[in-house]
Design a protein around this nucleic acid. Structure first.
Length: 283
DNA sequence: GGTGAGCGC
């Protein structure tokens, strides 16, 4: 059986998943349960509290709001907000944000933890446009770590997107276990992360997650995606065994995944180099 | 159709 996050309540912060499991929490594959698809449609009709409503027309005319910091209001009981070593790394990078997700929305996402210190979203200096990423500082490194483990890959409130979190690189890059990824093309338009993941997972238990690439603005699938494996031999097998297999209504076309352009947050040290002889599962 | 996801505007 698989553990799935409980359905979300509109207007609420995401369910803080059970205590960070002692094992390996989902990285980017904790695919949430399938929900009604709403491509291109911003959140439901009930925005959370007063935060981050998707603006019908953002009023980014001029006077871009200056850098905003959200100092945690006294909302939830500050757990053990004893300021620890001031040099301690406790900031997470957060990305894959929609343009209407402002500091308030992000703050609201983690408010229930009571451990948010500040939220800083990056915007274009001239237009004031949010850039789709930012930084969330927590009250302690332990808190940041806990949030990273439990929220990353989970659904964000009121929108069909999952949290994309990582340590802020200024501090420390950590990306534990290496993973082995394949490229999957020719996906039907209705294939979701979850479906893609399950299509593989039933055959390969080491599947960590799957990601259908979507256009950030329209949320529409670009027709391809990636599946991550923990086991390189399963990756290799899947390359041949699953090629041409249907997912939803269309046969998948599988290939090796070219590494993402960023060289920033990858496994430190070695990266997965697929010998030519292995490229198509011949080894 | 095609190789994701990014670090302080």
């Amino acid at each position: 059986m698989m553990q799935q996050p409980p359905p979300q309540q509109p207007g609420m912060a995401p369910p803080p998943p059970p205590q960070a499991a002692g094992g390996q929490p989902p990285q980017w594959g904790g695919i949430p349960p399938p929900m009604t698809q709403q491509y291109g449609a911003p959140p439901p009709q009930q925005p959370p509290a007063m935060w981050g409503q998707p603006p019908p027309q953002a009023h980014y005319g001029q006077a871009p709001p200056p850098q905003q910091f959200y100092s945690a209001p006294p909302a939830p009981a500050p757990a053990q907000a004893a300021p620890t070593a001031s040099d301690e790394v406790r900031t997470l990078w957060i990305g894959d944000l929609q343009y209407w997700m402002d500091e308030g929305y992000i703050y609201g996402c983690f408010a229930s933890t009571g451990e948010v210190q500040s939220v800083k979203l990056i915007r274009d200096k001239n237009s004031g446009q949010l850039q789709g990423y930012g930084f969330v500082e927590f009250t302690s490194r332990a808190a940041a770590e806990r949030i990273l483990q439990t929220y990353n890959g989970q659904m964000m409130p009121n929108v069909e997107l999952t949290f994309r979190l990582n340590w802020a690189s200024a501090g420390e890059k950590r990306d534990e276990t290496p993973d082995y990824t394949i490229f999957v093309g020719d996906l039907a338009a209705d294939v979701t992360d979850y479906l893609l993941q399950e299509t593989f997972r039933v055959h390969y238990p080491s599947v960590k997650g799957a990601k259908v690439v979507t256009d950030k603005l329209t949320m529409r699938s670009k027709g391809y995606g990636f599946v991550k494996f923990g086991d390189p031999t399963e990756q290799a097998r899947a390359m041949t065994e699953m090629n041409g297999m249907p997912c939803s209504s269309r046969p998948m076309r599988i290939g090796p995944a070219a590494s993402r352009k960023t060289t920033g947050v990858q496994e430190r040290g070695k990266r997965q180099a697929l010998p030519m002889s292995c490229r198509f599962g011949t080894c």
